[in-house]
C-alpha cells in the first residue's frame, strides 16, 4: 500500500467520522442529503460482497466493515432517530436518486471486466459511487448556511477521491499490468464532480468567509 492510498482511506474514514460526530453528538443532520447516504449504503453493500469469501488483509476487512456499518447506521439515524430526523431538510433534499440506480446497473451489465454476478455488482458500485454525491451537492446549493462540519465532510470526501487518483497513477508506474479503465474513468468523473465545490470551499477559506455555493 502506498502513501496516497493510505491517505485516501484515512480522509475517507475522517469524512465518515465527521458526519457521525455531527449526527451523534449534535443530533443534527441539517444540510446532509439522505439520498446520497442511501446511495453510499447501496454502493458499499454491492461492492463488498466478497467480504466473507475473499480475504485480502485484516486492514481491508476492517475498513469494509467500518464503511458498511457507518453508512447503514447513518441512514438509520436520519430515518429513524427521533431527534436527528427532525433536523433533516426533507423539502430541500428532492433529488430523484432512484433514477440513478437503473442506468448505473444497466451500464454495469454492458460494460464490465467479467460478466459474473460479483464482478457486475462491483462495477455497478463504481458507477453508482461516481454519481452518489449529486444529491448532496444539489442540497448544498440550496442550503443558505452551510455549517462547518457539513463543508468539511464534503471536502474530505472529495479529497479521498483525489488521493485515490494519485494512488492509481503511482500504482500504474510501480506495478506491472496495472490497467483498469472502468474504475479509473468512473473515479475521474466522481472527482470532477467535486471541482466546483472545491473552488468555492477554498475561496471561502482564503477570504475567511462562510461557505456558500451559488444557486
Amino acid at each position: 500500500m502506498n502513501i496516497f492510498r493510505l491517505a485516501g482511506d484515512m480522509t475517507h474514514l475522517a469524512s465518515v467520522l465527521v458526519l457521525l460526530l455531527k449526527i451523534h453528538t449534535i443530533k443534527s443532520c441539517a444540510g446532509i442529503s439522505l439520498k446520497t447516504q442511501e446511495l453510499f449504503a447501496i454502493v458499499f453493500a454491492s461492492r463488498y460482497l466478497d467480504i466473507f469469501t475473499d480475504f485480502i488483509s485484516l486492514y481491508n476487512t476492517l475498513m469494509k466493515l467500518i464503511f458498511l456499518g457507518s453508512s447503514f447506521s447513518i441512514v438509520w439515524y436520519i430515518r429513524r432517530h427521533k431527534l436527528v430526523r427532525r433536523s433533516y431538510d426533507k423539502d430541500q433534499d428532492t433529488f430523484r436518486h432512484y433514477f440513478l440506480l437503473l442506468p448505473c446497473f444497466i451500464l454495469a451489465l454492458l460494460i464490465n471486466e467479467k460478466f459474473t454476478f460479483k464482478e457486475v455488482m462491483w462495477t455497478f458500485s463504481l458507477y453508482l459511487e461516481a454519481v452518489a454525491i449529486l444529491p448532496q451537492l444539489v442540497l448544498l446549493q440550496r442550503t443558505k448556511n452551510i455549517d462547518n462540519l457539513t463543508g468539511q465532510y464534503v471536502f474530505l470526501l472529495g479529497a479521498y477521491r483525489g488521493l485515490y487518483i494519485l494512488n492509481w497513477i503511482y500504482r500504474y508506474f510501480t506495478e506491472p499490468h496495472y490497467v483498469h479503465w472502468i474504475p479509473w474513468i468512473s473515479g475521474l468523473v466522481q472527482t470532477l464532480l467535486y471541482a466546483d465545490f472545491f473552488y468555492y470551499y477554498f475561496e471561502s477559506w482564503k477570504n475567511n468567509k462562510k461557505l456558500q455555493l451559488p444557486a
Binding site: 482511506d9 488483509s57 467479467k114 499490468h177 496495472y178 483498469h180
Partner: peptide
Amino acid sequence: AEPSDLKDEL
C-alpha cells in the same frame, strides 16, 4: 501481479 487485482482497494 494479476491483471485484475484492484480488489485490494476500498
